[in-house]
Simulated assay, not measured.
Amino acid sequence: MSTSSGFCRDEFAGVRAVFDEHFASGAELGAALCVTVDGDPVLDLWGGYADPAQTIPWAADTLVNVFSVTKTMTALCALLLVDRGELDLDRRVAHYWPEFAANGKADIEVRHLLSHTSGVSGWDKPIELADIYDTEAAAARLATQAPWWEPGTASGYHAINYGHLIGELVRRITGRSLGRFFADELAGPLGADFHIGTGPEHADRIATLVAPELPDFDLSALDQDSVLIKTLTSPWLEVSETVTPAWRAAEIGAINGHGNARSVARVQSLIANGGELGGRRFLSPATIELIFREQADGLDLALLVPLRFGIGYGLPRPSTFPHIPQGRVCWWAGYGGSMVVNDLDRRITFAYTMNRMATGLIGSDRCDSYLAATFDTVGQVR
C-alpha cells in the first residue's frame, strides 16, 4: 500500500516506492515529486505533513519555499526577453541599467549576471535580511559596489542577490517587477501555481520549513574578506524568517519562490519540451541553446565546490554531481534539497520539493535517490 498520494504511471512504480520508503523511515516530513515527459506528468506525488507537529497533511496544492530553484524561474524571465530581442546576453549591463557602471562595473555583461560570474555575489556590509525586501532599493545598493573579483574569470554563486540583479534588468526593460513579469508571462499562461512574491491569500497552503541541523562551526575563524563569507553572510539567511508575511511577499528572485513539484515541473518543462508547451511557443530552439553556452567550470568562489554554469542554469558535472544525467541537461537546486532537472535529450523534467531541509546547499541524499530511480526507469522505458 502506497503512503503517497497522487498518480504514477505503472513503469514509474519504482520511483514511487523510493519516495514512500523515505516517508516510512521518517526521512521525509512532507514532500512532492513530479516528473514530466514531453511536457505531460507521468508521476505527480505528494505525501507527509506540512507542519513539524504533523497535524496538517501535505495536500495536492501545498506550497513551499523552494529557495534557489527560484533562480531557474528568474533565468527563464531573462530568456524570454532574450528571445524577444529585448535583452542581449553580450551587451553590458549598464546599457540597460546605467547606474550599474559605477565602481569598475562598466564592462560587466548580462551573461555574467546570469552565470554567477559578475563579481557581484552579495551586498557590501552592513546589510540585514529585511533590507533586501525592497528590491529596487537593494538593487540600487548593488549598483554602487565594486566587484569582489575580476568579472568573467570565475563563478561566485550569487546566492541571495541573483534575482535583484536580473529583476532590475526585467524592470528596466519592461516596467514590471520580476514577480509581476513572471506571473504575467509564465505562471499565468501555463496555469502554474508558482509565485515570486506570495500574498497572504496563500498563507494557509504554505508548508513550514524545518531548518537543517548544521554542524557547530565558527564562521569568525574564516577570512571575513573571502568571497564565501561575504556572499553567504551579506545578509545572513535565517530559515525562521521564511514564515513571516514580509519575507513571503517580497519578490526575491534568488530564493523566495513558493510552489510545489507540479508547478516547478510545469514551468521548467517548457525547456525540456523545446520551448513549446500547451500549444504555445515560449522560446525558440536558438534561445534554448544559449543555456548551454558554458560560462564557468571550476571551483566556485562562494561555495568552494566545483560548479559548471551555462546561461541561467547549472550544467552537468559528473565528478561533482554524479546523479545529474549527462547530455543536454540543465538544472539547479535549492538550499535544503529541492531540485529541478531538465533533460532535453529525453524531454524529461524532474522536480522535487520538501519541507524537511537537508544540510547541503546543493541537493540531498533523498533527492539523489529519486533522481537515480527516475533516470534508471527512463533508461529502461525509452
Rank of each mutant, 00 (worst) to 15 (best):
G6W: 05
G257S: 05
L169A: 06
L237C: 10
D216A: 11
L361D: 00
A59N: 12
S121A: 14
V329K: 04
F181K: 00
G257A: 06
E21V: 02
Y133G: 03
W123I: 09
W58H: 02
R248A: 11
W149Y: 15
T287F: 06
T36A: 00
G253M: 08
G188M: 10
S284W: 00
T62G: 10
G337N: 08
L129I: 04
R84D: 15
G175V: 01
I252N: 14
K71T: 15
P151F: 08
L209P: 03
G179T: 10
V378M: 14
I324F: 13
R382Q: 10
N273S: 12
G6T: 14
F292R: 07
I108H: 01
D131G: 02
I255W: 01
P126L: 06
T353W: 09
S284H: 05
R328S: 13
W332T: 05
A221S: 10
G279A: 12
G253K: 06
L190A: 10
A59F: 00
V15M: 01
F321K: 06
P322K: 09
D225S: 13
L219N: 07
R111V: 13
G257M: 04
P41R: 11
D124I: 03
S4I: 00
V170K: 04
R176V: 14
A50G: 09
